[in-house]
Amino acid sequence: MKETEIPSMRELMGKWEQKPVDALGPLDNDLEEFYGSFPLTDGHSAELKITKPKGPPPQVSGFPLIVLFHGGAFSVGSGNMVARPARDFAKQFQAVVVAATYRLLPEYKFPTQMEDGWDALYGVQLDRGFILGGFSSGATVAAVLLQQARDQGLSPSLTGGFISIPMLLVDEIVPECYRGEWKSREENTQDPAVTKDSLQETMDSWIPDIRSPLFSPFNAPNPHKGLPPTYVQVGGLDPLRDDGLIYEKALRENGVLTRLDIYSELTHAAWTIFANESSPKDLGTNTMKAMEWLLGKT
């Protein structure tokens, strides 16, 4: 979206978010939700929305930790956007789910979003079951940080990655070996919200260094090796489809354990508060199976 449209879209998105959150119904009696914040290295702070089982963690195993970043083209959105998977993961897997935010465009340019995400990881480390994930632009943040966590020696180490409908490539950085497979920008024009033009508008506002490792894990000095098991989800009709497909293939070819779900009739959508009766019937089920796999519970 154009920079001039962002303030009104942000206000509208805030209203849109609340209705599907309300539609999820009351919070399960076994869960609790609350807000917190974490300090950023430059003196700012960012908001966290935490969903967890009530009571103390089990003395032996503890609660696994899942950190999720929301989508919104780096311009709009909040932790509420991942309330559906946050509640589902917390309930089924007895996990603490942290919906972490990042500062938004146009006020904050690249690489602020990645730096905020990195600060969030340092604020919520855990020794057991440490999953990092996100949806859409949040998946972009998560994929970059999975690579950074390996390269920077984050400790405790991440144990899994959850990457849903990410944007990871632009024409200039597509590896030559995958160039023939990067076609979805041209093939998929059905989604009115995510188009070549809207993606370019995001880039124009973001002003990223497209060759930086903070833009894409493909730019890392030694990409894709030594990462934890990673789940990738793509929509067959999404203009960003091939970003996810190529990412999963690159991970797999470099020895990373992967799991992939492709929904042939889905555009740029996932198991968030905006999933509805028209979503693929197995979208929620497969999302839960993927997290079960990442947590080693299968």
Rank of each mutant, 00 (worst) to 15 (best):
S155A: 13
T159Y: 11
S205P: 05
G236Q: 05
L65G: 01
Y247M: 08
G62C: 08
N222P: 02
K109L: 12
V124M: 15
E33C: 03
K183R: 15
P192K: 10
L227R: 09
V97G: 07
I131P: 10
L199G: 11
T298D: 12
V124A: 08
P26T: 10
L126I: 14
S136P: 00
F74T: 03
L245D: 13
A269M: 13
D191I: 12
Y35G: 11
P56V: 08
W271N: 15
S137Q: 11
F63C: 06
K2W: 09
M114R: 02
L132T: 08
F274P: 10
S75V: 02
V97W: 09
W182Q: 03
N29W: 00
K196T: 11
I246K: 05
P156I: 07
V170Y: 03
L145A: 03
A149Y: 08
D261C: 11
W271V: 04
A139W: 06
S279C: 08
Q92F: 10
G133D: 04
L168K: 07
W16V: 12
W293N: 03
K196N: 13
Y231S: 14
W271Y: 15
E17W: 02
G138E: 05
E5V: 01
M167H: 08
W271M: 14
Q94S: 13
A86S: 15
D191C: 09
I207R: 15
R87G: 10
F215D: 00
A290Y: 04
S216W: 07
H268P: 07
P229L: 09
Y263N: 03
I6N: 02
A269T: 06
G255W: 04
T112C: 11
G236M: 12
K183A: 09
K91N: 05
I207F: 09
A142I: 05
E172W: 04
W271P: 06
A193P: 00
E201F: 09
P213I: 05
P7G: 04
P58N: 08
E107S: 02
K297N: 12
